[in-house]
Design a protein around this nucleic acid. Structure first.
Lengths: 343, 343
DNA sequence: TTGAAAGCGTTACCAA
DNA sequence: TTGGTAACGCTTTCAA
C-alpha cells in the first residue's frame, strides 16, 4: 500500500493525502479525518526511501565510534547513552546508524557520509583533547553534537557531558570525610578529555583542604585491566600505602581489585575503592550496588538529551551551540568503610 | 556533483556513466576508464538515497535489541558482535541501523520496518526459547539471521551461536579435574535459550563422571548483580558448601564475588570461580585476564560471520538456512587453584 | 481547499 | 556499445 493506492481508494489526489497525513493546515478537517482513518485502516506507512529522496533529508543520525586500530584498544559502545538517544530518534522517525570507524580514516568516513547523504548529523563519541573532528565537521557542514567535551577546540560546538570534575571532587571529598589521607588515583590517559577533568577534580578536592597531591599516588594509564592491576600493585608497595583508591573505569577496577587481593587485603574492609564509570550498562539500575562505591550519571537521559539537541540543530541550524553539563549521580555501596588504622 | 553533472562533463548519457561505474559488462573499456577517472577526479559519490529508491533496496541492515520494559532488565548491546558485523557491512556499502525495541511492540516494530522499507534484513539478538520473532519474520518475508538459537522454533532459520553447552561442559570438566566435587551453577533464567544449553553442558559433564547434579547447587535467576549475590550467599550457607562456582554472566559474577568476600573467603584461593560471558567488550584482548577463569568466544568474528550470512541471504534468498556453531575460547586466569581442603 | 505536474538522483528497460 | 525514457514513491510548487 503506497500513497498512490491510498489516494485512489479515497478518490483524492496523492497531494491532498500527503498533506492531510503530514498535518498541513490548508486541508479540510473532514478530509483529513477521512484520510487518517483510511491510512490506519489500510495500515499505510510512507516509504522511507521515497521520503528521503524527495525531501533531501536522510532521516537518520550517525553515531560514530572510533576504534583504535594500532593498539588493541576498542572504544566501548556506550550502550546506555545510545539506548537513550535511540528513544528520541524513534519518536521522531529517525534511524540510528551505528558507524564503527577505524581511526586511520575517520576524516574520509565523515566526508563520505556527507557526500553520500545517508545521515543528517552525527553524534561524536570519545572526544580527544582538541579533537580534530570538530573542525572537520564544521568544514563539511555536518551538524553534530559531542558526547563529552574537547577542550582546546578552536570553534564552539554543542556538547553533552557528565561533570567529571565535580564527580571526582565529590568522590575525593567523600573519602577525605571518611578519614582517608592517602588516596591513590588510577586514571585514564590524559589525552582523553574526561581524564584531565577527573584529575582536576581530585586535585581540587585535596587543595581545598590544604593538602597537596602526591605524584606517587597518581597514575594515568591506558584503561585496561592489566594497567589497573599494575598501578594499584605499585602504589600498594609504597610505604605508607594508600588506604583508598579512586578508579576511573570499571575495567581498570577489575585489575585494582586483583592487586588488592594479592596484597592480602579485602576491598571495602581494609581499603576503600570508588569507581567511576559512565557506561554501566552491565550493571543494573536501582538496588544492584556493588561492594564498592560507584559514581555514575543518568547516562540514558544524557543520550536522550544529546539526540534531541542534534535533531533541533538539523531542523534549524543555529550559530550558538547548546551545551549541557550533567551532574553525576553518586551511589554509595555498603562496604566502603572508614579509613583503616594502618600507618 | 551528481550523476547528471558528471555525465554532462563527459559528454555521455547518465545511463552509460552509471553502467561504467557499476561494472556492467556491456560498456566499452576505454569509456569505462574515462568515466572512472572523471568520477575520482570530481570526487563523485552516488547519492545513497537515490540508489535506495531506484533499486528498492534499503542498503541497510537492522540490529534489533529488545529491551525488557516491564522489569528493569536492559539487554546488553553486544558491542563486540556488532563491531564485527559493522566491518562486514562497511565493506559491502551497507549501513547498520541499531534499533532499540521495547518488547511490548516488537511485532509492530518489525512490520513497520518492513513496510517503511528502511532495512533489507535484520539480525535478531537475544532469542528466547521458541522465539515468536522467527515465525513473524518468516511471515513478513524479512530476511534475518539469529545471533543465538531459539530451540523449539517450528521453522528452520539461519543462526550463528557459541557452543554454550560445550563451553559449560569444558568449564565443569576443568573444575572437576582440579578436584572440585561440589560446584555451584549460577545460571540465567531458562527461558533464554543459552541458559538451557549451559545447564545441559554442566549436567552432562557431571553425568559423564558418574555424578548426579545437586538441585541445591543450581540456580536459574535473572542476571543481575543482586541475584548473583543471593544465589552465591545461599549456596555458601549450605553444609557442605560449594568449593567452586560456575557463573553465567559477568554481572552476576560481581554479586557472586561480593557474597564470597562477605563469607570471608578469597576468590581464587579459597574458592574457584569460572565466569562465562559472551560480551567482553569491557575486557581487553590478550593479556588482560582477570583473577578468575573466563570462557569466551571470538565474538567479533561471530558478528562478521552473521553479517555476511545475512547479506548473502538478502542477495539470493535460499530455502535452506545456514547455521554456524562456534567453539568458545577458554581462557585460564592465574588464580583458579585446586579445590580447597575444606569439608 | 484541492489537484496536476515537476522534481529528487539513481537504475532498468527497450531501442537504436 | 550507447542513449532515451520510464520508474521508484514521495514532496513541493504552481494553478485552479
Amino acid at each position: 500500500m503506497n500513497l498512490k493506492d491510498l489516494s485512489q481508494h479515497l478518490g483524492l489526489s496523492p497531494t491532498t493525502v500527503s498533506r492531510a497525513l503530514n498535518g498541513y493546515p490548508e486541508v479540510n478537517e473532514a478530509t483529513r479525518e477521512k484520510v487518517m482513518a483510511a491510512a490506519k485502516r489500510h495500515n499505510y506507512k510512507p516509504n522511507t526511501r521515497a521520503i528521503r529522496l524527495a525531501t533531501g533529508r536522510a532521516m537518520a543520525v550517525g553515531h560514530v565510534i572510533p576504534i583504535e586500530t594500532r593498539h588493541e584498544i576498542v572504544n566501548p559502545i556506550f550502550a546506555d547513552f545510545i539506548a537513550g538517544a535511540g528513544e528520541t530518534y524513534a519518536r521522531a522517525g529517525y534511524d540510528l546508524i551505528l558507524s564503527i570507524v577505524p581511526d586511520g580514516d575517520e576524516a574520509r568516513a565523515y566526508r563520505e557520509m556527507k557526500s553520500r547523504g545517508n545521515v543528517d548529523g552525527v553524534i561524536v563519541h570519545s572526544p580527544r583533547h582538541d579533537d580534530f573532528r570538530i573542525g572537520l565537521l564544521h568544514d563539511i557542514a555536518m551538524p553534530f553534537v559531542v558526547h563529552g567535551r574537547a577542550t582546546g577546540a578552536a570553534l564552539p560546538y554543542a556538547w553533552v557531558d557528565v561533570n567529571n570534575r565535580r564527580a571526582f571532587h565529590r568522590a575525593t571529598d567523600f573519602l577525605l570525610d571518611l578519614g582517608h589521607r592517602r588516596i591513590g588515583l588510577i586514571n585514564g590517559l590524559e589525552f582523553m578529555d574526561f581524564a584531565i577533568r577527573r584529575r582536576a577534580g581530585f586535585v581540587q578536592a585535596l587543595t581545598a583542604r590544604g593538602m597537596t597531591e602526591t605524584p606517587a599516588l597518581m597514575r594515568a594509564v591506558e584503561m585496561t585491566e592489566a594497567n589497573g592491576y599494575i598501578a594499584a600493585r605499585d602504589m600498594l608497595a609504597q610505604t605508607p600505602a594508600p588506604t583508598a583508591f579512586l578508579v576511573s573505569s570499571m575495567i581498570m577496577a577489575l585489575g585494582t581489585r586483583r592487586a588488592i587481593e594479592e596484597h592480602g587485603l579485602i576491598m571495602g574492609r581494609d581499603i576503600s575503592v570508588i569507581i567511576h564509570d559512565d557506561d554501566l550498562s552491565y550493571m543494573q539500575n536501582g538496588a544492584d550496588v556493588p561492594i564498592f562505591t560507584a559514581t555514575r550519571s543518568s547516562v540514558r537521559a544524557a543520550g536522550r538529551l544529546a539526540a534531541s539537541m542534534l535533531l533541533d540543530t538539523i531542523a534549524n541550524p543555529t550559530p550558538t551551540p547548546a551545551t549541557h553539563l550533567l551532574e553525576a549521580e553518586l551511589i554509595i555501596g555498603q562496604s566502603t568503610g572508614p579509613a583503616p588504622n594502618r600507618s
